[in-house]
Design a protein around this nucleic acid. Structure first.
Lengths: 344, 344
DNA sequence: GTTAGCACTCACAGTAGATGAGTGCTAACA
DNA sequence: TGTTAGCACTCATCTACTGTGAGTGCTAAC
């Protein structure tokens, strides 16, 4: 297998053409549209090699070639030139930056909307994972005879509340003391560090308060566990129907049902825990239902810590350059957007 | 126009048959399947009248008849017999009742899922509207130099939090005093009663605290405004693709895009503010994009007050009886489900 | 008022042929 | 040895045509 310069050029041409037209690319198209200085017959010979090596596929005898997942992978890794994001996208993002949004989930929805609007693909945005941030403040508020509200604020200014049911009554003063003690023990800790062993340790340490402390500590544990599952916002699922690769409704339906499984999406997105952009093409995806899709994800940060993920899912025939440039621009700006909400 | 007994029976037969098969119903089908004791020719004559009066429609010359919106309306108002909900649905709901779900939004998602699963239509569930409940407790917690967390708890035990940015520093003690004063003034008030005029009044009344009170009061106003917009959870949007009336992808796409407009759905659902079941058939819908759909909604209550809506949207050819019985059963049980979360 | 009979309509499925894009192979050329 | 022109071949797609059957409306007889 000798991928010489001409073969690379031909493969590049095939992929570029197929991405933009969606039609299988024939040898004549290449020899006419792309100036390689050779005839279609020569290109046919080269294409035959490229097919043998698995970079392109022929859907049927009398059709042109389309790129395989392996072809796209080569393209993405070596051939693709990252574009700078286009002007109109920047304007749309700046517009979002200027808007007065003061709730994280609303912002996330808007981000998802914008991503799908710009790309015409389906976008996914996961909300900031509280577990990646540090405990800043914890407060217990008496609600009524049998319940207490637990408020947890983290250093990213993320706030969660949780109603705790108790068998005994706890007055304001006790709760204040307790809050102070808990703050002292837990303040500054990474949320994911506040786990069961630590809770057990605290239970023993605070044994004096027994009855009151235990349910509260349990509640803290539970709150952290449940609120640490990020939400996912999808937008533009329906864009899928615009792509010929999903003109078979059954395929589209299958994908839709998969996209409705938010838990699954969470697990897919949370696989992206590095910085930068991650591209997963077709069969590289672990989930069967999206093996004919490509997924591009980017993580975003709050105060330098990566806390969430934004992503685009679409057919493997995707405008990789554009999506990559958009996602990296957007992920860089998420920090700004979030801080506007969190720091006011 | 004289809708005699036989015509009613024929109309009933057409609608029942069409709902179950989805195929236009011919005169012969009726004379064979439904024992009316008359020949197909007679039925044809009657059908001709029914069509003239607008209860049924002939898609094309050589096809049977299908019910019109007017036909469905008559059916729903007068002919339909409300079924009792079937055993398996009850079991599924009871299963949900037994599950340990301790967050309202998770519960709402599960309810939506269940509704779409049982009906095979698309379900919509709006979260409890906090504005319909009463203020129970309000608390201000210092966060850092410039920010304070505002916690509002209502009598349905719904909790919201909001970070308030301030120019001046407020210490715990001042905030406690303030919380107490605000509690005194606002406790027991219906959340929607806490509006701008009242806030203005309070500002004047509490003039002494000036600098600190004003941003807090503004924040209360804002919090109430933003958190009073209910969320909507959809489930089974994709079920739409199973219905022949949406086999034209363009139509399905249009509907999908409409269903993605959560604000629109909120406004549609919030139109249902009475008790009981509300059925809106085809053209009766105000939004153009769902004029070929039927919408069935039911409100649910917390502590006797109607605070939210559950609904099913599907083709006008809908199994009205089943959906109505399911929604009324479910809406009656929402109270239980919610109280399990809210009261522990 | 009801019914049998009949001509008529029209969507739909199936078939056949034409079209054209694209290929692989071969032989000739530089 | 690499490149190219030429040609036969394949196969999806489109169009036109036809037959079929479900269903109707109308008429005349009961």
């Amino acid at each position: 297998m000798n991928l010489d310069d001409r073969k690379i050029k031909i493969l590049n041409a095939i992929i570029k053409d197929y991405i933009s037209t969606g039609e299988p690319v024939g040898s004549r198209t290449i020899s006419k549209k792309y100036e390689l200085g050779v005839s279609s017959a020569t290109i046919r010979n080269e294409m035959s090699d490229l097919e043998e090596w698995g970079f392109i596929i022929q859907p049927h005898t009398s059709a042109g070639r389309i790129p395989s997942d392996k072809g796209y992978r080569l393209y993405v890794d070596q051939l693709m030139k990252i574009e700078t994001i286009n002007e109109s996208s920047i304007k749309m993002i700046e517009y979002l930056l200027k808007q007065k949004i003061d709730q994280i989930d609303l912002l996330m929805k808007e981000v998802a909307k914008l991503l799908s609007l710009i790309t015409n693909y389906t976008s996914m945005v996961s909300t900031p994972q509280i577990q990646k941030t540090r405990l800043k403040h914890l407060q217990l508020i008496p609600l009524d005879d049998k319940s207490v509200v637990l408020i947890i604020v983290t250093d990213a200014n993320l706030v969660t509340d949780n109603v705790i049911k108790m068998d005994v009554k706890a007055d304001q003063e006790t709760l204040n003391k307790l809050s102070a003690m808990l703050n002292e023990s837990l303040k500054g800790l990474n949320i994911e560090q506040i786990n069961l062993p630590l809770i057990q340790e605290l239970k023993i340490k605070m044994g004096v308060y027994g009855e009151i402390v235990n349910p509260i500590l349990d509640a803290i544990d539970k709150t952290i566990k449940t609120s640490s599952t990020p939400d996912i916002y999808l937008s533009g699922s329906m864009n899928i129907l615009n792509f010929p690769e999903f003109s078979d409704i059954e395929k589209a339906k299958q994908l839709f049902y998969t996209l409705e499984e938010k838990d699954l999406l969470v697990s897919i997105l949370s696989k992206h825990n590095s910085n930068g952009i991650k591209i997963t093409i077709g069969c590289e995806n672990e989930i069967d239902e999206i093996k004919n899709c490509s997924l591009i994800t980017a993580s975003y940060t709050i105060g330098g810590r990566s806390v969430g993920t934004i992503g685009i899912i679409g057919p493997t025939r995707m405008q990789y350059e554009k999506v990559v440039s958009l996602l990296s621009y957007m992920s860089n700006n998420m920090d700004k957007l979030l801080n506007k909400i969190l720091d006011g």
